[in-house]
């Protein structure tokens, strides 16, 4: 049976944990607003870039089109770009990405493909290093966080592009958490190479564009840009999703700590009462004996 002093200490320790989780929740909520704004204001560029590339791609010559768009005709080696967080304490955020990656690797290997991994974010690469460490081509840290720089996305896209040009892989897919709203994140798989570009809507397709320089040349210069843009918006989405996940997780933790404090306080009061009753019984029976 825990003594009163022990119980008091337990309660105090849970109380300080609750203070920490409540503070983390508020920090995440404040940062989330900024990250969400960044993700939203990044959308126009990504949308326009996509529609321009789509209209260009629909007119490109299939035979002479760049390999980044149509693929190199093989699909033996897959590169997975896995975007997770650098920090933990954000609920199932990193865990679900890790799980998805693991099942994706298993699926591809089951099909007889070779898998390579490019890890963005410390948590997921730590979790998978023992299992798939030999498949890592690189693992990056410090890319996300409160402010995502476009130049970071460009760097990653250059790594991917060089790898593709050297024939290190044939197909490239990105796995990341998409920010849906403050309580939901959605794991999304996007194929980067060959570029998966949704077809243009009909109103656009009718316009006869002039191109300067030629279509193929323009497309060649656009594809690296669209790759960077896709990576950049994924990084933005992932950062916002991470903060949202942390906010929810810390909110739950704060509430759980509150419940625990209530329960412990009840136990504490009961033991105190029992001790008082015991003392009274001793006094009364002592008085009766005299």
């Amino acid at each position: 049976m825990a003594t009163l002093k022990d119980l008091k200490m337990r309660i105090n320790s849970v109380k300080s944990t609750q203070k920490i989780t409540a503070a983390m929740k508020m920090v995440a909520a404040a940062k989330l607003r900024r990250a969400q704004e960044a993700a939203v204001s990044g959308r126009p560029y990504a949308d326009r870039m996509r529609s321009v590339t789509a209209s260009l791609a629909s007119k490109a010559n299939v035979n002479s089109a760049p390999e980044m768009l149509v693929g190199n005709g093989k699909s033996a080696i897959h590169l997975l770009v896995v975007v997770s967080a650098d920090r933990g304490l954000c609920g199932g955020f990193n865990g679900s990405i890790t799980r998805q990656t693991r099942s994706e690797v298993a699926r591809l290997q089951g099909d007889g493909k070779t898998v390579k991994l490019l890890m963005v974010g410390r948590k997921c690469s730590d979790a998978l290093r023992r299992e798939f460490g030999k498949h890592f081509i690189d693992s990056l840290e410090g890319v996300q966080g409160t402010s995502v720089a476009f130049s970071d996305a460009v760097e990653i896209s250059e790594t991917i592009r060089n790898g593709f040009a050297n024939g290190d892989f044939d197909v490239c897919t990105m796995i990341f958490n998409k920010f849906v709203n403050a309580i939901t994140q959605e794991i999304t798989l996007t194929q980067l190479i060959p570029a998966e570009i949704s077809s243009v809507n009909d109103s656009d397709a009718g316009v006869n564009y002039d191109y300067e320089p030629e279509e193929d040349e323009l497309l060649e210069s656009l594809l690296p840009r669209i790759l960077s843009t896709q990576l950049y918006s994924a990084l933005l989405e992932s950062s916002a999703a991470e903060l949202a996940a942390r906010m929810t997780a810390m909110d739950n933790a704060t509430r759980n700590a509150g419940e625990l404090i209530d329960r412990l306080t009840l136990v504490y009061n009961r033991s105190r009462q029992a001790a008082i009753t015991n003392e009274l019984i001793e006094i009364i029976s002592g008085a009766e004996a005299v």
Partner: peptide, 14 residues
């Protein structure tokens, strides 16, 4: 360099 006025022909330029 090129100038763009209203009613310019559709153009996609690098």
């Amino acid at each position: 360099l090129f100038g763009v006025l209203p009613r310019h022909a559709p153009l996609l330029a690098g």
